[in-house]
Write a protein that binds this DNA or RNA. Structure first.
Lengths: 127, 127
DNA sequence: CGGTATCCGACCGGATACTG
DNA sequence: CAGTATCCGGTCGGATACCG
């Protein structure tokens, strides 16, 4: 939202001119909390409190904001069971699952190459 | 298998050791400029000024910082030709290419689903 | 339980100026 | 051409408090 601040993006990157859209989606992937949430939800629906426990370090504020934007993008579905106290479940939508599998590929990459990256950094910083 | 395809994101994130390295790598993907630069370099080596021209909207500062961190991570190689004026070329390393291909998967996803995402947002914002 | 509202410090990144 | 240095406004996100 209001990413328009960042000037007019008429660029040669990608084939399609509105790179803003492309960037919007990539920003979603770029968000570290979104990635972690989508990865967890790839395992199946989870309650709010489950997510909060699983992602130690995330603040209530950020968990809510993350879930809201994922829901807004149609990647996550929110289900409220009006018991008392209320129960809220989050699950990936079908489209959300397709993104989740892409993200999963990235995570696999990250795990496979983290030693390489760490070594590269050490070497770079040494010189 | 219910959770085999997932990473150990369940580890705490509060303590910085185990997961933060994973996150460091994902942050690289998360950076919007890094993604664009890697995508461009996927086509072959490029000069500094070519990148700057292709990615309209990027500041000189950010292009330099982005390239430096990609180089530090061993994903991009910097080659200086000491002519006058100097010429600097950037190219993906072999490992950089493997990440680049993951990234292109994401970009393909983004193109395929950008209408869906846009529609979801419109519907969400309307309610 | 599952949020919302508000404050505020940290950091990110654009603009600008200068250099080998 | 390919950077580095500095300033600084804006945003992100943690902490805290409160609510249905």
């Amino acid at each position: 939202m209001t990413r328009a601040r960042h000037t007019d993006v008429r660029e040669t990157i990608g084939d399609d001119h509105p790179t803003c859209r492309l960037r919007d989606v990539l920003d979603r992937v770029g968000d570290k909390w979104s990635v972690l949430v989508m990865d967890l939800l790839g395992d199946g629906p989870k309650r709010y409190s489950e997510l909060q426990r699983s992602i130690a370090g995330i603040s209530q504020r950020m968990l809510t904001l993350t879930l809201r934007s994922l829901e807004r993008d149609g990647l996550v579905e929110r289900t409220v069971t009006p018991t008392s106290p209320p129960r809220v479940d989050y699950a990936l939508t079908p489209v959300g699952r397709t993104l989740s599998s892409q993200v999963s590929g990235l995570i696999v990459w990250a795990r496979q190459h983290r030693d390489y990256v760490a070594a590269s950094r050490a070497r770079y910083d040494a010189s």
